[in-house]
């Protein structure tokens, strides 16, 4: 049996809102030690989502036996809208379940809402992602990166990320012209999350689809910082930390044809 209780329904709501525009169907893998993990790839095979909700994400978590919950995220999203952000949210599934029970509890009133979501058999292949040695790692405020991704999408289909030891530059070239934003590393002692950290082994210059970056930055609601790991001629990793665990996006770059 699975029983996972979130202190705030908003956490799961934000997670699902961050991934459901990229993938519609995905398997939630549940286990006592790892909590709930998900790997899902978008239909175009360009963006991979790796989610890890450790047991620490939950106020209470138990999973007696490993289980896989096949979920339609659009349907799950409809149910999650029924609860309030501050509610307790509990996911309950029997062994070999054909449905997932979702329970919202208001913390002040004696209101309990229960929903049952039908599960699906989802046949999806899993990719092996080795721990890569990255050429560059950038940690910056997620709001800043989100603004760049959203603003530059109005100018161009692609966003170039150029990292040197001194700076990270985001650059877009479109029909109306071009633009760039440069960030230099800095440490904000009063607000550490406002700091910008650049670790560079080798300079990198990569280009990504603006549409995918716009999907990725939807997760900015989950964390005030984002870590971007870049390696020449390889997919980039965009990571948002959860209270315990992470939401990662791997995005394949664009190349000169």
């Amino acid at each position: 049996m699975l029983e996972g209780k979130f202190d705030q329904a908003s956490l799961l709501k934000k997670i699902i809102d961050s991934i459901r525009d990229s993938v519609k169907l995905c398997n939630f893998n549940c286990s006592q030690n790892d909590g709930i993990t998900v790997q899902a790839i978008d239909d175009s095979r360009v963006l991979l989502i790796a989610l890890k909700m450790d047991p620490g994400c939950f106020q209470e978590f138990r999973c007696d036996r490993d289980m896989v919950l096949g979920l339609d995220l659009e349907s799950l999203g409809k149910i999650l809208k029924q609860g309030n952000n501050e509610d307790y949210l509990t996911l309950i599934a029997e062994d070999n379940p054909d449905s997932l029970l979702i329970v919202f509890e208001d913390k002040k009133k004696d209101r309990i809402s229960e929903f049952s979501l039908k599960l699906m058999d989802i046949d999806s292949d899993v990719l092996t992602i080795d721990d890569m040695d990255n050429d560059c790692s950038i940690t910056m405020p997620s709001a800043d990166f989100s603004k760049i991704a959203r603003d530059f999408k109005t100018m161009s289909e692609s966003l170039q990320i150029i990292v040197t030891k001194e700076s990270v530059k985001f650059k877009a070239e479109g029909q109306i012209g071009s633009g760039s934003v440069i960030f230099k590393p800095h440490t904000d002692l009063d607000n550490p999350d406002e700091s910008i950290k650049i670790d560079m082994n080798q300079p990198v210059n990569l280009t990504f689809g603006a549409k995918y970056l716009n999907d990725i930055v939807k997760a900015s609601t989950l964390s005030s910082t984002i870590t971007i790991k870049l390696t020449d001629k390889a997919p980039a990793l965009f990571e948002f930390k959860l209270p315990s665990g992470y939401l990662r996006y791997y995005l394949a770059p664009k190349f000169e044809d």
Binding site: S44, V46, T128, T207, P235, K254, E256
Partner: peptide
């Protein structure tokens, strides 16, 4: 002209 690459060319199926 830029061409979008696929994750399949970087990651193997598990």
């Amino acid at each position: 002209k830029l061409k979008q690459s696929s994750l399949n060319s970087f990651f193997k199926k598990a």
